[in-house]
C-alpha cells in the first residue's frame, strides 16, 4: 500500500516500499504557470529534508523544489527533459521529479496528509 503526503512548500511524496516518488502539486504547477525546464539532481546524490533537490522553471519564474524527507536519489524523470509540460499536465503522475530511497520512514509522519494539505491551500486564497 502506498502512502502519499504533502509539504507546505507544495511538494508531494508517495512511498512504495522503500522508494518514494517526489513531485510538485497541482496547486504548485498552477501557481508557476507553463513549466519550461526542470533541473534534476544526479542519481546517487543524497538530499536533505527541506533543502533544494530540483529547480522548476517557467518563463518568468524559477522555483526550488525541496526534498520532503532525506534520502538518496535512485532515479530521475528523464522524460521531463524533452517534455517539461508533463509537470503541468499530470503533476501528481507522469510529471514526477525524482525517486528517493528514503532514510527514515518515520520522517513522513511530520508531513501533511491529503485533507490537511487541501485545507492549507484553501487558506492561502
Amino acid at each position: 500500500m502506498s502512502i502519499i503526503k504533502f509539504t507546505k512548500d507544495h511538494e508531494w511524496i508517495k512511498l512504495d516500499g522503500e522508494v518514494a516518488t517526489v513531485g510538485i502539486t497541482d496547486y504548485a504547477q498552477q501557481q508557476l504557470g507553463d513549466v519550461v525546464f526542470v533541473e534534476l539532481p544526479e542519481v546517487g546524490r543524497n538530499v536533505v529534508a527541506g533543502k533544494e533537490a530540483a529547480v522548476v522553471e517557467s518563463v518568468k519564474a524559477a522555483s526550488e523544489v525541496y526534498a520532503p524527507v532525506a534520502g538518496d536519489v535512485v532515479e530521475v524523470n528523464e522524460a521531463l527533459a524533452d517534455d517539461p509540460a508533463l509537470v503541468n499536465r499530470d503533476p501528481q503522475g507522469e510529471g514526477w521529479f525524482v525517486k528517493l530511497r528514503i532514510e527514515n520512514q518515520g520522517d513522513l509522519d511530520d508531513l501533511l496528509d491529503e485533507a490537511a494539505y487541501k485545507e492549507y491551500c484553501e487558506g492561502l486564497h
Binding site: 512548500d9 510538485i24 501557481q31 508557476l32 504557470g33 518568468k60 519564474a61 522555483s63
Partner: peptide, 9 residues
C-alpha cells in the same frame, strides 16, 4: 518550493 518571479501562460 520557493519561487522567484511570476507566473506565465
Amino acid at each position: 518550493m520557493n519561487t522567484q518571479g511570476r507566473k506565465t501562460h
